[in-house]
Amino acid sequence: MRVSIKIIIAALFVMSAPIAGQAQDANPAKAETAAPKVQVESRLERQVRNIASLLRCPVCQGESVYDSHADVAVEMKTLIAEKITAGETTEQILTYFKDRYGNYILMEPPAEGLHWVIWIFPGFMALLGAMFLVQHLRSSAKAEQQRFEEQAKSKEAPGEIEELSL
């Protein structure tokens, strides 16, 4: 990942850069693993992060459980870790919290029941807006064409004020 980022950045600006990025691959840590202990985030910790990021910290009201340092959030993370170790799935763990705290505990409303509205709305609105806009542009182009022709016929300055319905 690390290397690829560099290459992407380079590629964006200097088209011939991929070679430059590769040279920096050598990681000193890999060489000197002998003496100090290298701590790597465990698989468990990563799973906890993935789940805790989907839950809202109940007392902070903006942060996710994962980002929060509040006591409740810390305890929730411990519980999530225990549940993962016990073999529960992400789905089961989220349901556990949802059953006790309600949908409020989820960072986004579940796409079910009435909450479909919030998920469909953006696409619906964008579509509606685009349809309206194209329709409007078509009709105004037509009107403009007519005006142009009339003007050419009568050779008069535009007299009446037309409406722009936007």
Partner: peptide, 11 residues
């Protein structure tokens, strides 16, 4: 509906 929900970063 009286229900409380959150709409946060992931949405």
């Amino acid at each position: 509906t009286g229900e409380r929900v959150s709409v946060a970063a992931p949405y």
